[in-house]
Design a protein around this nucleic acid. Structure first.
Lengths: 340, 340
DNA sequence: CTGAAAGCGCTTACAG
DNA sequence: CTGAAAGCGCTTACAG
């Protein structure tokens, strides 16, 4: 392989000069710089990553800890992953993708071996056992998802409290007085998906403040169960004019359910979902929805992580960045139908 | 950080002895081995990956070159990625995920920097510009997807020729004599998705051999266009009793199309798709389909790659492994309805 | 503005 | 069965 020694020889300088010419860490005469650069081009030189890492203690790699949970809409994860890898690359970092079942072990292993400069944790749970390891690690980390205790670690998530309120307020303002909220299954919550109750609690509280009805239901995450549950909910609450969906499977099932009942949105019922724009496109869902902003969150987490790696950020100050929810209007909300 | 020097000191041996005790590359007295292992445990020692890579020229990392194309069903990619990362991990490798727009540049960069021991290329096109770079690279590679010229590189793919034949034969045997095949858009083909015509050509040829009708159509990859196209195809070919779908969007749109026409599968029309089992589950598609076997293909590619890295395989012999298609029976095929 | 040398943390011939 | 030493390819004080 071609080394910096080869470059130095071809350029007729010492290895240190070649190194400095490339890093720009000390001033180099233009002629020498040109000779070095020419040598690099002609030889096709690229620094050996391992040697560089050993010498600098910087790998220019970030570790991405994904966590694939049953009953979760796996494809959604891809958007987070792409946000992270693309932003990392733009900033000169590559991404080591860790999909180990045992996230704690993976974190320990990679951290100890100094394979990466920092970590991004995806799908962070309310009580995530990876956080303690991360706090001990010599490398910094950024979370995508808000844990119960984010002390000492930067965290990025959608503001699910604001999302719950926004959904209710939007329909209330249009005149709706009875709503149904379909959440993800309770076991998502049990294994740490606190965002589910954050949204639901906020929605219920806001509905109470506004003096309107909100029927909350934990739905299944699979077909055809969720379809049947939706049917049943609509049967049970005939006066409900608005449907809030914090459940991807429910959103995917709804078109058929409405169709079979001869209902259309928003003429007969208003609908607001909470899922990614990408999901909406894939399933061609015609419902207004609060975007998960997966790509954006992944990018923010990386941006902050790199600032921390670079030390361009106060080490003692940690941020919790909750993205304000925004409804992508697809025209599925309107004033409720007048009852005759 | 804790180094092998620390381990050696605590164990009361030399660094080389500590190293050999851990690698097992020469015989070590049981007592010494035990002392070293104890030191490793108490210190929580893990070798520095960069130093190890520098000394051994082995990184224990494989590079995964993903390629995200417009209009392709991105979530499907996740299954390949998971197959690769999981299999790699089982064999002691980590995975560097490369999502660079410019795959050629990424390949050069990573190869030259010696960050990985080998490459997996996903979504390989008929005329993939990454292949020449890979052939020059010092690291071996495995392809997922069959290019026009796989010379010198191991390739893994579903056997799309067999898949096309199988779809036609299956319905022919049930008594169908007029079929519709919906492929992915032509531009998928133009940018190198040769599997589209491989399947279509094989299906057409087999239909001709069997003396039955096959209407071939390149469908859109998005809603609601593909839904309208399906409507039109059914209108144009009222005598068709079988529908073959090599187009994910078409499969996702079909339930609504059939429903709106008052048709059910397989009573009125038989359907066979070609998409991943995961896709079927996500969209709860009730159609029998040839699985993409993404996970399996990813795993095979990794397995072969690692054998090549380890040199446990004849360096001069290259394989093209085409997975035999298999229909996951979801009950959407039957004898054609009798016409009165 | 440039060079010779030490050091990063490993592995592995070489010597005993 | 074990140890002292060289070397992997970089970077970066140190010295001029």
């Amino acid at each position: 392989m071609v080394t910096i020694g080869d470059v130095a020889r071809v350029a007729g300088v010492s290895r240190s000069t070649a190194s400095y010419a490339l890093s720009g860490k000390r001033s180099i005469s233009p002629e020498v710089r040109e000779k070095v650069e020419e040598a690099v081009r002609s030889l096709g030189y690229t620094p050996n990553a391992g040697a560089k890492a050993l010498a600098t203690s910087q790998t220019k790699v970030i570790g991405l800890l994904a966590r694939f949970l049953e009953d979760e809409f796996a494809p959604a994860m891809l958007q987070y992953i792409l946000g992270v890898t693309n932003q990392a690359r733009e900033r000169g970092y590559d991404t080591l993708l860790l999909t180990d079942e045992d996230g704690v072990a993976a974190l320990k292993r990679i951290s100890n071996s100094r394979m990466v400069d920092g970590f991004i944790l995806l799908n962070v749970a309310e009580n995530d056992d990876r956080l303690d390891i991360l706090r001990q690690a010599p490398q910094p980390g950024s979370l995508v998802g808000l844990p119960g205790d984010p002390t000492g670690i930067d965290a990025f998530d959608l503001d699910f409290v604001a999302a719950g309120r926004l959904m209710v307020e939007t329909l209330h303002e249009l005149g709706h007085r009875s709503l149904i909220l379909v959440s993800q299954p309770e076991h998502v919550l049990e294994r740490g998906g606190a965002y589910v109750w954050r949204l639901a609690n906020a929605a219920e509280q806001r509905a109470a403040e506004l003096g309107i009805e909100l029927h909350h239901h934990f739905g299944s995450s699979s077909q055809p169960e969720i379809g049947r549950e939706l049917e049943q909910l609509l049967d049970e609450h005939p006066s409900a004019t608005g449907l809030l969906l914090n459940n991807e499977a429910a959103a995917a099932a709804l078109p058929n359910v409405l169709h079979s009942r001869g209902l259309t949105a928003p003429a007969d019922i208003s609908v607001i979902g909470r899922y990614s724009d990408d999901f909406a496109r894939t399933f061609s869902l015609p419902y207004s929805a609060i975007d998960s902003a997966a790509d954006d969150l992944g990018r923010r987490a990386v941006e902050r992580l790199i600032s921390r790696i670079d030390g361009t950020v106060d080490a003692a100050t940690t941020v919790v960045d909750l993205l304000a929810p925004r409804i992508d209007d697809r025209g599925s909300t309107a004033v409720p139908p007048s009852r005759h």
